[in-house]
Nucleic acid binder design. Structure first.
Lengths: 241, 241
DNA sequence: CAGTGGTCTAGACCACTAC
DNA sequence: TAGTGGTCTAGACCACTGT
């Protein structure tokens, strides 16, 4: 059943096996799966190891537990929203569109007050400001301004940001983005936006501002994006309990 | 230190103690906390119990671990976004505004095709449609249409939805909302919306559509909200790793 | 009552990091 | 080499659900 010599941990192998059994309807929706004690006999591991696997699947939404009754298979997600955070490039890929960019401006500046605050910067620190038009299937989709502290990514040049900034950074540094705070609002296109996005002035714009944090909480970037509302909807999943 | 006789589990008491030590800077940002083995001696519990507490705090973003090095305190969140999912009533309360409603329409109808699909309903099922204007500090903030399967909340009446629908449902049923899928887009106000929201036609509207699921995956409601963009921004936190 | 998940113990070996 | 988190064991008692 399980490969005890595999470098993959037992709990992970159990997770994959249970997910596969859900997919193939061996465990069906709204039905219980075997109890933790039964599973620990089947897989020949301790109950705590089974529990670790089941707990992870509960956190990911595949299963849910009811005290005294058992562990049940949750109903399948109807529509899969893009899970978590994605770059523009990844986002478009998931939507089945190809993406490209046009660099309008690449400068190093002292940060404006709101950026300085959002990036928790000291007085004399500088930031990159990268101003781009983002295309999806060769049509304008968004205009985007990205602010990144120079101290975090020293030596970045214009040629490095023609494609995905994340790709460049992942090649050259070991940063892991952990989470982000997003602010989403609706506005009306001004003349500059209208021209850059090839829409009429006064058309609707979906404005998304994101502040990304690394694992240790260091603010890494502020991205201000203005999307064409006729082409873009923002989809996400949120959890309560 | 800990109350071993408390009905609160040990790992929970440890979580609270560590959080308190972070707040009071006994454990400071970017510094390690004591190792799991040290903590298990301090609290006089097994290492697995300490691990359960620490794992929860890592998942909540208070701590992060680095293999071979230790467990570190993450930097504080700069701005606290409303965590998870909230009703309009809860949302406005967190923003320091009072909320009220005006019921425009309360009917039982066969669901339109998109609602039927999003609520996974069989052929002959009916839904409540609740159409309301939502006020914040007595000014119009949003117009909202809520669709709930009659089978899930039988017997709901007009008088039950003057305030918070969630409050009514929590009083009468034992449902727990687990997660939701949200779609956010920007539009331009049409004449009806402009009149209801007391804005000029062609003003920006932030449109949010939410499908909420219960713990077992049953779709519970679809809410279509149109917010005045001049008064409302949507703020959320998203996670990657 | 027997069975379930929730909590907890007192060990163990591993891979990784820092010195 | 010593210390860290990552994984795992083989038990235990509890509160809760159903019959």
């Amino acid at each position: 059943m399980l490969d005890k010599k595999s470098p993959l941990p037992m709990y992970y192998q159990i997770e994959e096996d249970i997910k596969q059994k859900i997919d193939s309807a061996i465990y069906s929706e709204r039905e219980t799966i075997p109890s933790e004690r039964e599973l620990s006999e089947q897989y020949e591991v301790s109950r705590m190891t089974v529990r670790q696997a089941v707990t992870n699947l509960v956190n990911e939404g595949y299963l849910y537990r009811e005290k005294g009754k058992g562990t049940f298979v949750a109903e399948k997600k109807i529509e899969q929203p893009l899970q978590g955070m994605t770059s523009f490039t990844e986002d478009m890929k998931q939507r089945g569109m190809n993406s490209s960019s046009k660099l309008l401006d690449f400068t190093i500046i002292p940060p404006p007050a709101d950026i300085k605050r959002k990036l928790s910067l000291e007085e004399e620190r500088q930031v990159y400001e990268i101003h781009r038009i983002r295309y999806a299937d060769h049509q304008p989709m968004a205009v985007e301004r990205t602010f990144i502290p120079v101290a975090l990514v020293p030596g970045m040049q214009e040629k490095d940001v023609y494609g995905s900034i994340y790709e460049y950074i992942e090649k050259n540094h070991d940063y892991t983005i952990h989470k982000a705070t997003q602010m989403i609002e609706a506005t009306i296109a001004d003349e500059e936006q209208a021209e850059l996005l090839d829409i009429v002035p006064a058309a609707a714009i979906l404005h998304i501002e994101r502040t990304s944090l690394l694992q240790d909480g260091t603010p890494f970037e502020v991205v201000k994006s203005s999307y064409r509302a006729d082409r873009y909807k923002f989809i996400s999943e949120i959890h309560r309990s």
